[in-house]
Design a binder for these strands. Structure first.
Lengths: 223, 223
DNA sequence: ACAAAAGTGTTGATTGTACACCCATGC
DNA sequence: GCATGGGTGTACAATCAACACTTTTGT
């Protein structure tokens, strides 16, 4: 029967980390934010932004801190993904990582991290440090799955957006083309966006109506 | 920029635990396995079975160990649920817990743990130690949600079962009555069970056909 | 006038839901 | 023969999927 006393025999220093998969969509591409490592191990390799948890910090607070420190954007959509704790996942010692994923809108101007951070197209990722490739792949699967039964995609939109932009986000993440009329019918049925009186007049064609969320920040489960 | 070196300032001893919500269904009730605590804190209160992770143990291995040590049943359905790490969740120190949930079939004869363990109807739970009430509530929600889009319910069935028993499991977890004919149609469409040539002859009525899983242990996502 | 994307409804297929009676057994 | 749960099909409603043309702008 294990109790907390039993672990006093542990001579391994334990640490708990958070790693955050930060997604954004731009053009027809889904991007994840990666950080080039400056210290061993995995020097020079790309990794997810992360941090060790502070003594008085919950995992979600740690993830928010990563968003604040790395992007200057604490107030975005954030969701716990999965925890990774294989004994050999960090060569420096025993680190259990609670992984999160975050969604940020495309227009957001984001801190550069002195050029050590970059957006990477998730279809062409470099090799990643630690088990971060598995974490990112899981986040990608979860994001694609949640498109089908939640309104999470709106978290990737700017404040005002056209229905074509929204459809493009769905198509980019889901990886398949959607029918324009059926898509608009579906979105209308969700009843969570409303037209503004503004139009998007970029492009050599008929201007597009701009919409906005009725309740910013809300994510609904469908059905 | 937090790196692993930064945490060397931590004067708090960290530990990582697993807690396992173990469900079974019997009769018309959903039960969770609880353990009466013999040591402080929360002496005498009920808690989820759990353990601190060993130095060479992954979280899932730790959860399997809990199943083996507490129930003598390592080979059941097990899924990571969520991680809980509020700084004050354990009064003894900093413990981050990776929660799992497990499903066991009803006929399974399970170790008693010297009478300190008991099945509890989830609709009438005692107060639980730590944040275990939140963990259990989340596990319950997740289980109910997964009924709708996976074949996870079969993990709660004995090797041979009748369609009425299966329907009763769905009704018990989902909390609502289902139409018998529509239920059978749905299950047949899943194409993952097959009739045996045996009948269940208990009860003063027409015997019921016994079915079994086509691929034992497999859990499919629907759609 | 032409190119380019915006915008808009209808039809048929599929899926889900409601619903009632006969069957085989034990007592 | 009666009580008990086992077992089966059909009709309607709702949802989903396929599909083409007109509109408005910039050049």
């Amino acid at each position: 029967m294990s109790e907390i006393g039993d672990n006093s025999g542990s001579r391994v220093p334990w640490a708990v980390a958070v790693d955050v998969v930060i997604f954004t969509v731009d053009g027809e591409q889904l991007f994840a934010r990666l950080l080039r490592r400056g210290k061993p191990p995995f020097v020079g390799q790309w990794a997810l932004p992360g941090a060790l948890l502070g003594d008085e910090e919950s995992p979600s607070e740690g993830a928010r801190r990563v968003l604040r420190e790395r992007l200057g954007m604490p107030g975005v959509y954030l969701e716990q993904l999965y925890s990774f704790g294989a004994p050999d996942r960090d060569p420096r010692g025993r680190v259990v990582s609670v992984a999160y994923f975050a969604l940020i809108p495309p227009s957001a101007e984001v801190g550069t991290g002195e050029g050590t951070q970059q957006w990477h197209d998730v279809r062409a990722l470099p090799p990643l440090a630690f088990d971060h490739d598995r974490i990112l792949a899981l986040a990608h699967r979860r994001l694609a799955a949640k498109l089908r039964y939640s309104t999470i995609a709106f978290q990737l939109m700017p404040e005002r957006f056209t229905l074509s932009q929204l459809q493009s986000v769905y198509e980019t993440i889901g990886g398949e083309a959607l029918d324009k009329r059926n898509f608009r019918k579906r979105i209308r049925a969700l009843d969570c966006i409303e037209p503004t009186d503004e139009l998007d007049r970029s492009g050599n064609h008929r201007p597009a109506r701009l919409y906005r969320l009725k309740v910013p920040g809300e994510v609904n489960m469908i059905r």
